[in-house]
Structure formats: structure tokens, C-alpha cells
Design a protein around this nucleic acid. Sequence first.
DNA 1: GCTATCAGTTTACTGAAGGAAAGTAGTTTC
DNA 2: GAAACTACTTTCCTTCAGTAAACTGATAGC
Lengths: 123, 123
Amino acid sequence: MDKDKAQEIIERNCEGDHTQGILAARDVMELLSGKWKIQIIATLSFDGKKRFMDLLRNVEGIGSKMLSKELQTLESNQLVTRTVCDTKPITVEYEITEYGKTLNALIAEMISWGIEHRKRIMS
Amino acid sequence: MDKDKAQEIIERNCEGDHTQGILAARDVMELLSGKWKIQIIATLSFDGKKRFMDLLRNVEGIGSKMLSKELQTLESNQLVTRTVCDTKPITVEYEITEYGKTLNALIAEMISWGIEHRKRIMS
DNA sequence: GCTATCAGTTTACTGAAGGAAAGTAGTTTC
DNA sequence: GAAACTACTTTCCTTCAGTAAACTGATAGC
């Protein structure tokens, strides 16, 4: 999203009733709420498909209970897909969906703002 | 942020170690965590400065304890300013800072994604 | 004196988030 | 037959986010 478009969205929300916009932003926060969802989505976005154990190792600090729960809600929101592979022992692959990829711009915005924020905090 | 820049950020994170990016995104989620911060920031961004009671009325559903607590953390993060006015009875004005305004692009991105998401959920 | 407004604080409670560790179930390797 | 790997699930526990309602203390109007 370019700066003019961002400004346009903000301005559209400034005239009169901006309940819808705020509700929409709130939905997004809820969808991505908690300590892990962004990390899981980002990992799958950056590295491509991964198995359960790979995620357990790559998403630093998460436990199996949390990972399993978070993956379920991400799947129910159609942000990732789950594929059982007929290997021995069975493995399960998780991959980000096309829809999940539409979050890239938002995540990129978070990363760039977050990095600037870190710089500000440090100094 | 335009699409190319978003893509560039994502790609930069894809090569090798992307811990910093994920940590930065996590920071942002933490900074904006909870049910109210985005709503408060958005209200102050859209409508300009507001007093405590105005916010209590405008941020739908919030109670005075939460509002007071959230405003304190937003102030400590330099996203809003608090100004006591020498009126009778005293009033306090909250206003978004220049720094807080740099969140506009992120909030706009959330709103636009959220609105598309709502459309998808409805149909 | 009674009520109301302003900007909160205090107390007491509930429910959800999250962590640690053990258990389940199938398969393969030693 | 024991251990190890796969992908979880279950149980138990603690901490924190959030809510409701009462209270504070100053001022102002009726």
C-alpha cells in the first residue's frame, strides 16, 4: 500500500462514522492475537512448507500443545493448509495458503515499523 | 508502503536469518496487544484530541479502569500525550503524537485487509 | 444540603492464555 | 523387546487480561 492510499483510508475513516474501519482493524488483531500466530505465519511465509517438528524447532519457545492449537485455528481461518503425507512414520506438512499470503503486506508493514521502533527504543 | 517494498522486506527476511524481522513484528503485536489500544489510537487519529470522558463514550464498551490503564501505557510508549488543562473542573486532553501518527500506514493496512476479510467471511 | 461532572483508583471477581510434563498411538531401528 | 521418532492430546497449574461497581476528591449549580 502506498502512502497516498493509506492516507485516503485514514481520511475516509475520519469523515463521520468510522465504526466499520475500527471493527475491521479489531478483527485483524483478534485473528492474529496471541504470542505465536505471527511467528508461525511469518515462518511459513519465509521458508515455505514445514512439518510439525520443524515448526516446533523453528518457532522459538513454543510447546507442542500451543503449536497444535494455533495451527488448528490458523487452518480454520484458511490461512494455512494441513497435509498428511503417507510416509513412515507419517508426517504432516503445513503450508501457507494464497489467502494467507495476502497478509504479507501487513506483516511487512509490521516488520518495518517494528524495526524503526527498536532503533528508537535503543537510542 | 507499496507492493514492491513489501515484497522486498519479505524477501530480505527469506534469505537466511529472519529472527530480527519476526522479533520486530512480535514487538508491534505486543505494543498494540489487547482489546482497546487500536481503538483508542484510531479514535485519536481520526478525531483529533479528546478528553477522558469523550474517549469513555467514544471507545465503545471500555470502562474507566481499562481506559486509564491503556492510556498510561500508550503514553509511556510515546504514542499519545496527556495534557492537564487548568479548567474547573479540571479536564485532561489526550492527543496522538507525531510518532503515533507513523502507525497510520499500519492501521490503514489492517483496516483494508480486515474489510476484505469481512467480505470473505460473509459470503 | 443534594446532585452532578471530571478524572480517575480500588477491590473483587472471572475466564482465557500459556507453560510443563506426561500420555497415546503407530512405526521403525537396534 | 526396548528405545526412538512421528504428531499430537490431556492434565494440571499459574498468570494475566478484562469487567463491574463502588469509591475519592475537587468543583459547581440548584
